Simulated scan of single mutants.
Amino acid sequence: MTEPTATEKHRTELTAYCYRMLGSGFEAEDAVQETLLRAWRHRDRFDPEKAALRTWLYSIATNVCLDMLRSPQRRARAMDLAPPSRPGDPLGAPLPEHMWVQPVPDSRVLPGTGDPAELAAQRETIRLAFVAALQHLPPRQRAVLILRDVLRFSAAEAATLLDTGVASVNSALQRARATMTAVPRHDTYDPLDQDQRRFLTRYVEAFEKHDVDTLVAVLREDVVMSMPPFGWWLSGRADVGAVISAPGQPCENDRALLTAANGCPALAQYRDGNGFALAVLELAGGRIAETTTFLDAPRLFPLFGLPMSFPGGVRTTSGTAEH
């Protein structure tokens, strides 16, 4: 029952659970590996008459994540750390990786097929804003909310997983829900939605042409831009537009590939033909509501299965490509 083939089929949903708990795709992968290893080592303890294999694996994964969350440091986004910057402000010194909520590929945490409504709900719960809000919760409270509201375990099942009582689970859930009400809601991303596909195609074309007018026009008035690992971030179309349109932008000849991260569209950004950044885009009302550009391409691109060199070659200042 607990052979690797039996447990592996749960890898994707376990990775999603660990990602929500830990706020890092890398740590989630480590946590799932440890979960499956513990399950194999202690396979003699599994009793199918007491719990389903899936429930048993979630119990192990919960303990693994709680062990990893013993540090008081919580992951965050730039807007959780400081007031917005202004155009022309310096980026400042980069902050350590462990301070940031990190992106995760949709392919690692979402099933390839399924009910569209269920997939949409799952995308909502891996968005950067949602995962960042989870990090404000104490770890056990965080686990309760994910188990009950995201994974739909009953209160009794969650209590068993956490080795506590139903009353304790219900109390923790009530407190956690109060914290999560502040999470902003944006458009649900659907890779098959033709309007969204056309919008993203237009956006990529404008990005590669450095068409400033179009890039600014597609921003919401209250758009937010950030660039981990820097604490620098901007709020509002006027400030973001001022930075995009500033002369001498280094991104004028960048290329881009469309991918998906955190239930949202994302751009793999290439500079001089080499992987440079991953930009996660939040959509709202047919416009860009938020961009979070992660600059750690050497680590992130392999996780996303992205090539480190742009497939089409290097764009030169003349607009042609060199191979």
Score class of each variant (00 low, 15 high):
Arg299Asn: 15
Ala39Cys: 04
Leu95Ser: 04
Arg123Ser: 04
Leu234Tyr: 05
Leu161His: 06
Gly241Met: 05
Ala206Arg: 09
Phe230Asp: 01
Thr164Glu: 06
Pro138Ile: 12
Ser85Lys: 07
Asp195Ile: 01
Ile60Cys: 01
Asp80Ser: 15
Ala261Ser: 09
Gly305His: 04
Phe310Leu: 09
Ala129Asp: 15
Asp163Gln: 12
Glu118Leu: 10
Met79Cys: 14
Arg148Gln: 09
Glu49Trp: 06
Ala82Leu: 11
Leu200Tyr: 12
Asp296Gln: 02
Leu37Phe: 14
His210Pro: 02
Leu95Ile: 02
Pro94Arg: 02
Leu53Met: 10
Asp222Tyr: 05
Glu290Met: 11
Phe26Glu: 08
Asp30His: 03
Arg185Asp: 07
Leu215Thr: 07
His210Asp: 11
Leu57Trp: 03
Thr317Cys: 03
Leu267Arg: 07
Pro48Ile: 06
Leu306Gln: 05
Ala266Gly: 01
Glu13Met: 12
Pro307Ser: 11
Leu81Gln: 10
Arg255Gln: 04
Thr293Ala: 03
Thr113Pro: 00
Ala167Asp: 13
Thr5Tyr: 13
Gly236His: 12
Gly248Ser: 10
Ser168Gln: 12
Pro111His: 12
Arg45Met: 01
Gly165Trp: 07
Gly236Pro: 09
Ala256Gly: 03
Asn253Leu: 10
Gln269Gly: 00
Arg299His: 14
Tyr19Phe: 15
Gln135Asn: 13
Pro87Met: 11
Ser168Met: 09
Arg45Thr: 06
Asp213Lys: 08
Glu34Ser: 13
Arg77His: 06
Pro311Trp: 15
Gly23Asp: 00
Ser107Gln: 06
Glu27Ala: 15
Pro48Tyr: 07
Tyr58Met: 12
Ser226Ile: 06
Val104Ser: 01
Phe304Gly: 01
Ala61Val: 05
Ala167His: 09
Leu37Asp: 13
Pro247His: 10
Phe26Asn: 04
Thr164Pro: 04
Gln196Met: 11
Arg41Glu: 06
Leu281Asp: 10
His10Cys: 00
Glu13Val: 10
Arg54Asp: 10
Phe301Asp: 02
Leu145Asp: 05
Trp100Glu: 02
Asp195Thr: 10
Gly112Thr: 13
Gly319Leu: 03
Asp115Met: 09
Arg86Gly: 03
Ala182His: 09
Pro90Arg: 07
Ala261Glu: 02
Arg45Ser: 05
Val150Ala: 13
Ala156Ile: 08
Ala156Asp: 12
Asp195Cys: 00
Arg315Ala: 09
Leu162Cys: 04
Gly88Arg: 06
Gln141Met: 14
Gly231Cys: 06
His98Val: 05
Pro83Lys: 10
Thr113Ile: 07
Phe207Ala: 05
His136Val: 04
Thr164Gln: 04
Arg127Phe: 04
Ala31Lys: 00
Lys9Asp: 08
Val183Lys: 15
Val314Lys: 13
Met99Lys: 12
Asp30Cys: 01
Pro111Asn: 08
Ser71Phe: 09
Pro72Gln: 13
Ser171Ile: 04
Val216Arg: 08
Gly263Trp: 03
Gln33Trp: 08
Tyr17Ser: 07
Ala120Arg: 13
Leu53Arg: 06
Ala289Ser: 12
Ala182Arg: 12
Pro96Cys: 11
Glu118Arg: 15
Met99Asp: 03
